[in-house]
Design a protein around this nucleic acid. Structure first.
Lengths: 339, 339
DNA sequence: TTGTATGCGTTATCAG
DNA sequence: CTGATAACGCATACAA
């Protein structure tokens, strides 16, 4: 039976309000009183009951992170959210969301209706789900998107600069001497895929390399997609000398396919990715990739969410952070052509 | 301003208690009344306030998952916990715990003191932390361990059968014709490492293969450890023909090292791991490994925790689930020796 | 089958 | 600077 604020008040010989003041670090308390209360708290091992606080303040002190699946990228997001969230004295609630799954929809709706969360952090691909976005808008819950697949004018988001990152990497490949560069594309209707593709295109254009439609392969940004696309690419009359995966997952699939085909990386074909997943440095050869600054993204996202929750307008509601290249062993100069 | 139970009562023209009965599916309500209340609930869009319920029932309706780091194994645990937890109408709170990190200690202590969680799920390596275990015991919070590094008599846990899994894999390697099998060992003082090592030893013994101390290499069960151990193993006078990683992470490190050394897997050296991480099927060649039945483990763990929280004794407090072999391309017969 | 009154542990109001 | 008292929204013992 834990001690309550009343017990403390009795022991410290004051009113509960005074105890409350001490606990919540409010001003207008005499130093002597404060000390008396403080020691009472300690001898009783008192800790305020969070549920009571939540009730009376009509606040859940809880933010929800919406995850679609558990992968490394998500893990990184999570770690950082936990870290930052706690600094703001918020609890973090994890919720999986599957568009196809009715139960997860209802669960989330209940969570919001029952005021069990104050705000949400949305991770891809949750943000492209119609039902979800409508639910969020209708219920007026504050939320912020992380690396949205699509962007909208009103919704706050924080993301990496996909266009710039892709441009940088494509440029680097070109500098190495490549000009037949295949691109493993993601879902066509996602802003993220589009930006990365455009970054690639822009670099080609800048260096006067003709863009070839057939070198853009569908990969869905996953391992299997990257694998299949690579098999197809290598079966072409003029196979590419470099394969730029729009995501590390796809690039890892490409690596696998090339290995299977007995094609040496980077001697015969260079491979690179995008995202900088932890496992990308455990492949052989290490995967050259574009680092999406996950930590910084989450940091900023939480900052924005907290500002909104606190009632003041954040500095900016839509933030795009620059990406940077991480070169490892999977890229090199193309082999000398012998015609 | 959401509707409260009073609003519903007023609209349905009954007392709040009756509404409460309907909401909580209690008996003793006339069908007619129930319908009246039900429709009132719907027109008002009423949802019970969770904080209020938590307060009055002195229950947090929340269980906490303690994570040390965010990896794939942890992700798998998480997904399942979420899934099962929600079926029991519990919220899942994620908490990172770093033994070295004072803030995370305090945070957890506060969580427990303030009755913000009803129970916990502990994942490795949290369970070997003195401070943590003492805190848990002192505060009397119910908890259950998942794949504990060490086991104790009183604490409920669910885990895979490390000994049996390692035995199985070692046996398989022997069947393939290997007898110089290196083992990438984990932290020496963990029950989990010990069991896996003993399973390996037992298989050797069963098949009358002399155990060689020097073939047991320290790897700490991580990528770098596996990498270094493998470099050392391959530098021996008589290098092993197979490398059994006590964890997939270590085995992936081994794969990397061998690739670097130009050693062909499985032609010259076979490699296998333990855990069956998702990335183990994305390596080249696919990593043969021992599947730790994470989902079943979590399932059982939550079941036990729920039983304890509900006040009745679970069927069993300590459960060990069998592992099974997952053979992929990284293992094969050893090369023919030419002396 | 239904309703009334009381309490859960806080914070907030406003008077002292 | 301090304190009595009223919310907060729900559950629950007990009465009708």
């Amino acid at each position: 039976m834990p001690a309550t604020i009343k017990d403390v008040a009795k022991l410290a010989d004051c009113s509960i309000k005074t105890v409350s003041r001490v606990v919540n670090q409010e001003p207008h308390v005499a130093e002597a009183t404060r000390e008396k209360v403080q020691s009472a708290i300690e001898t009783l091992g008192y800790a305020p009951n969070f549920s009571a606080r939540r009730l009376v303040q009509r606040k859940a002190y809880m933010i929800c992170v919406l995850l679609h699946e558990a992968g490394f990228y998500q893990s990184a997001v999570l770690s950082k959210v936990l870290d930052v969230g706690y600094q703001h004295d918020y609890d973090i609630l994890i919720q999986t969301y599957f568009p196809s799954h009715n139960r997860s929809k209802e669960k989330l709706a209940a969570l919001i209706r029952e005021k069990r969360v104050d705000g949400l952090v949305i991770t891809p691909p949750c943000d492209v789900d119609r039902y979800l976005t409508e639910l969020l808008v209708k219920s007026q819950v504050p939320y912020v998107q992380i690396t949205p697949l699509n962007r909208t004018a009103e919704v706050p988001y924080v993301t990496g600069d996909d266009y710039q990152g892709a441009y940088l990497m494509a440029e680097r490949l070109i500098m190495l001497g490549h000009w037949r560069i295949a691109f493993l594309n993601g879902p066509r209707n996602h802003r993220m895929s589009i930006d990365r593709l455009y970054g690639y295109k822009a670099a080609l254009e800048m260096y006067r390399i003709p863009f070839r439609e057939r070198l853009v392969m569908e990969s869905l940004y996953n391992f299997d997609g990257g694998y299949n696309a690579t098999r197809m690419a290598m079966a072409m009359d003029e196979p590419p000398t470099a394969i730029f995966g729009g995501s590390d997952s796809a690039a890892i699939g490409a690596l696998y396919a090339l290995r299977e085909l007995g094609v040496s990386v980077p001697k015969q074909v260079s491979v690179c990715g995008f995202d900088n997943l932890p496992q990308s440095q455990q492949t052989w050869p290490g995967l050259s990739t574009v680092d999406h600054p996950v930590e910084a993204i989450v940091d900023k996202a939480i900052e924005i969410l907290m500002a909104i929750l606190a009632g003041h307008e954040p500095d900016s509601r839509q933030v795009v952070l620059p990406c940077r290249l991480v070169m490892r062993g999977s890229t090199g100069a193309p082999p000398v052509e012998m015609t």
